[in-house]
């Protein structure tokens, strides 16, 4: 029995390691070949070079696309996090009939293929007369980001103890000051985490931007256009490696911040005010 269990445990560990490799090896190929001194993405590697990165830094069209993506990402993450903050507060604080309907509505974008979201937004923009631009992309991204903002903030609001707010009100603070001095600091990690994660969601989106960006491409739309030209591929690899590294860093930071104060650190947050 023990032997069988040991085998099972061992087998599972091996499986877990294989699974992680399956997840990560494809991603590691981008940085690996981005330093390869060849126009072909193939083995054997033909020597170390940083010229693809130099080429990337000199590419003006890429810079414009990057700047467009950042502008859209900042708008979408700010708006979706603020909307999500109000919504999550309401959904946890007030007895609301129809709560599950609201939640279902807000998570609906996760269950609709991006292409359908993209074309229906395209129809909306042309029907209402909003020109295709970074603004229309940002509008679409607010919808795309909202489920993530609400999920992150909801878990933060659910995790905190109402008695802190009650104590503050009992001690004579008004509603606004209570929110500002008690509630806000407690939810702050959730807000930061939501801002970072929604920025990433917006930054990575290709399809909605593909339909809505008009003549101002975001970075994924720019990359898509480059993929048609084989001689551009090493440049895409360098850019891709940089994006992967950037988004992994941001996500790890976001998750780390999100876990703040969850395990008994709430007191130190309050004490720190």
């Amino acid at each position: 029995m023990t032997a069988a269990r040991g085998l099972l445990r061992h087998g599972l560990t091996v499986y877990a390691v294989c699974y992680l490799s399956f997840l990560y090896v494809p991603l590691f190929l981008l940085p690996l070949f981005s330093f390869n001194d060849s126009i072909f993405i193939a083995f054997p590697l033909s020597g170390f070079t940083t010229k693809w990165y130099v080429q990337m830094f000199q590419d003006d069209a890429m810079h414009r696309a990057l700047w467009n993506t950042v502008k859209v990402g900042v708008m979408a993450s700010l708006v979706s996090t603020i909307l999500g903050l109000f919504a999550a507060r309401a959904l946890t604080r007030y007895a609301m009939p129809g709560r599950s309907v609201v939640l279902g509505f807000a998570t609906l974008p996760l269950f609709i293929p991006d292409i359908v979201l993209g074309i229906s937004l395209l129809i909306l923009m042309t029907s209402v007369g909003i020109p295709l631009s970074l603004v229309s992309v940002a509008l679409g991204h607010v919808m795309l980001c909202l489920p993530f903002a609400i999920a992150v903030l909801l878990s933060r609001f659910e995790g905190f103890d109402r008695s802190y707010e009650e104590a503050s009100l009992d001690l004579g603070e008004n509603g606004w000051m209570t929110f500002w001095r008690v509630t806000f600091p407690l939810v702050l990690p959730g807000i930061v985490s939501s801002l970072l994660l929604t920025f990433i969601v917006s930054f990575d989106d290709f399809l909605i931007a593909f339909f809505l960006s008009g003549t101002e491409p975001t970075l994924p739309v720019y990359i898509w256009a480059q993929l048609r030209f084989p001689f551009q591929l090493p440049g895409v690899l360098a850019l891709g490696a940089a994006i992967l590294l950037g988004s992994c860093t941001v996500v790890v930071i976001a998750e780390w911040i999100r876990s703040w104060g969850v395990k008994g650190e709430t007191h130190s947050h309050i004490a720190g005010i």
Binding site: V79, F86, A87, A90, L91, Y94, P109, I119, S120, L146
Partner: peptide, 27 residues
Amino acid sequence: ETLRGYFLVSPALAALIFTLAAPLTLL
């Protein structure tokens, strides 16, 4: 309580109606 809740949710709902419900209806 309910109205306060819906008041706070309404900006998100309005955004979703404009960017999700309306586009899907048009579709």
